[in-house]
Write a protein that binds this DNA or RNA. Sequence first.
DNA 1: ACATCATTGTAGGCGCTGCCTACATTGAGG
DNA 2: CCTCAATGTAGGCAGCGCCTACAATGATGT
Lengths: 202, 202
Amino acid sequence: MPASRPYHHGDLRAALLRSAERTLREKGAGALSLRELAREAGVSHAAPGRHFRDKQALLDALAMEGYERLDRVLGEAYGAGPDFERRMVAIARAYLGFAVEHPELLELMFTRKHRPDSSAQLGAAVDRTFGALTRLFADAQERGEIVAGDPERIALAAAANLHGLAALIASCALDAEEAVAGLDDHVHLLLHGLKPRPSDAA
Amino acid sequence: MPASRPYHHGDLRAALLRSAERTLREKGAGALSLRELAREAGVSHAAPGRHFRDKQALLDALAMEGYERLDRVLGEAYGAGPDFERRMVAIARAYLGFAVEHPELLELMFTRKHRPDSSAQLGAAVDRTFGALTRLFADAQERGEIVAGDPERIALAAAANLHGLAALIASCALDAEEAVAGLDDHVHLLLHGLKPRPSDAA
DNA sequence: ACATCATTGTAGGCGCTGCCTACATTGAGG
DNA sequence: CCTCAATGTAGGCAGCGCCTACAATGATGT
């Protein structure tokens, strides 16, 4: 007998999350099993139940970590670039980079939830991420870098654009490298619109 | 004994798909069980196996139906409106309408697949939907209604925008009514860009 | 008309899962 | 040092997907 683990694991919750994250990345959310996680952590099959009410609670915790990470990488991009377009490219690159590195996690973060209580927390996380973006646009508006109008609506237009691209990448409907390579042009279209601009000779 | 069902169901495959669609809408993809579907159809628990190799095959079939429906509603919108912006609004309304009416199905259609064979069929379906949109933009380009450039890239910009909005609605991250109400403005931003246009006094 | 045979449904079993309950061990606080 | 909440264990339950062997059916060729 190993006598290694002193009955109490020490930090089972964190160990389960790390293990779950690895499984999520390598085999997808569907292949995630609480019993398997327990086995990997070397505890009994019921032990995870002490830290997560049920499987969905563990997935929700993973999703919350995802939002924190996404906020972090986006936050770093917010300060980038001399002008607005460069900053927007940096933000787009950050979001798409997240989608490329953690496609399964992104999918998990934006999977429809049906439970009211978990939806509340995750909804708040979405609002945080989106709120930061909205403030960025409101600031840019004050500097005259973007059009007037409800900043929340403008932020939504930008967010939908980026999220759409990221979601298409995560779902393998779009080749990641191709999307990243064309990111500059993509952001240009977002900022300048699809209609011809007479002044766009530059 | 009922003597009702003559051993052979008649059209079990279709019955399973209809039943599955209902379950998907009412209880979500996670609650979908082949055995439960068999029970609803009044057949043995192994009968579905004759029509769908496994559970994923049934989900793939549902997703394929989803693409067909989406193509249909988008196709109807392609002919709408006198000018390009109206047509674009009609398309956006169609896509968002689909997302509002069948959020779980949309999620299923864009769920990451790991199996090569099913990915092929579904990938082709995505290409069809996207291809139609690309042709529409190529035509609009010839009429000078939108900017020059690779039509595929321009179509991607528009598709990402719409898909992002639809995905946010489907995942409950965005209120559906709010999004639909602001659709005109949203499309306007897509066409005219986020940067100020001197000529946009109109 | 009838034998043939692929198609479609049945019956039962296997290992796995999530979740439940009762019990054991531990470490911290009164 | 005793108590007790927190944490891990052991076992059980029903449900699941998938598998195999078997039965009923209806189309096909002669």
